[in-house]
Simulated assay, not measured.
Amino acid sequence: MKLLVYSAKDFEIPYLKKANEKGHRIAFCNEALDSETAINAVGHKAISIFSGDDASVTVLEILWNLGVRYITLRSSGYNNINLKRAKSLGFKVANTPNYSPHAIAEHAVALLLTFNRKLITANTQTHQYNFEQNNLIGFNLHGKTVGIIGTGRIGSIMAKIMHGFGCNILGNDLEPDDDLVENCGVTYTSLDDICRKADIISLHIPLNSRNYQLINKSKFIMMKQNVILINTARGAIVETNALLKALETKNIAGYCTDVYEKEKGIFFKDHSTEGITDEKLIRLLSLPNVLLTPHTGFATEEALENIAQITFENIDDWEEVGICQNELGLELIES
């Protein structure tokens, strides 16, 4: 099968080539998929897209008319594809679930520790031969209350790590995990209760219509002034305007994130020469109580290997049996 990989990053290409054991004909495109770059898919029966690619209605219709029939996402989330329209057109769509929940959860913890213990400031100072400690004071995680929004594959690992630090854990999920209750002492409660009580809040939920701007002005008002909010899920789960106000007025202590609501066209590129024009992101990055990484939570060797492997398992299954275990939207056909 001929496969075009959109948003192909230099560091992931070797993993994808290695995983192509069945010898599919692969082409790599470093541009993101959108209405203009969709034409690149001419002659390809399948495409692979990443979280920042645009698979909206218009783009899907262009792809279908070009002969594309299979779309495999190199991510577990799929909010960037209009799944209902994809299925009505006849596309086969699959994601890469559970590629490495440890990578994301560990990155969330890394953000927390880096922010709390002022590691970036400390490193900068010592490289300038400044060994003072006056502005490097953090706090113990032991005994703190951590609220975890979403205790699925990633959130459950986050809960286990925080349990290891000796934290008190509050959880919020549509389907509580009895094992976390028994083994990690997780107490399931409402989102509002977590906002009121938690010293640290970590988001591990998908972006959908129900969760869009879930953390908004009303939620920030409930939070403690010393709370640290961690977001390794999706940027649009947090209302950016409300977040900026909460940070600028010190209504919350800090925001540690690997994602941004409008990261398309900004993340995964070097803008160090020309700069950026997104005023909200510029404001966010100007704040001392913000730690932002450019969507690198997935970037571990193990995760990249798994993403590549699952990507080609999806392609192999489609070519050999016409369906794959990671296929999305089957319920849309049945309904």
Rank of each mutant, 00 (worst) to 15 (best):
L141Q: 01
G152K: 09
S48M: 03
I237P: 08
V109D: 06
I221K: 12
N80L: 02
A94E: 01
K262F: 13
Q225I: 14
F91L: 03
I149V: 06
S272C: 12
N172Q: 12
A46P: 11
N172W: 13
P288T: 09
I333G: 12
F91R: 05
S190M: 10
H142S: 13
K160E: 05
E319Y: 09
I13P: 12
K9L: 05
G171M: 09
R25D: 01
P206H: 02
D316W: 11
N20M: 11
A27Y: 00
H44G: 03
Y255K: 13
S209W: 08
E301W: 09
T293C: 01
S272W: 14
A105I: 10
K22L: 13
D278P: 05
T37I: 14
K280T: 07
K22Y: 02
K87W: 05
T300R: 11
K160T: 05
D53G: 02
F139H: 15
E319W: 00
H127A: 01
N251M: 15
L291Y: 04
I310M: 10
I205E: 08
T300E: 09
T189P: 04
I282R: 14
Q325G: 08
I104W: 10
I307R: 06
E261C: 08
E248K: 15
T277I: 13
V93K: 09
T121Q: 13
I194S: 03
H102N: 00
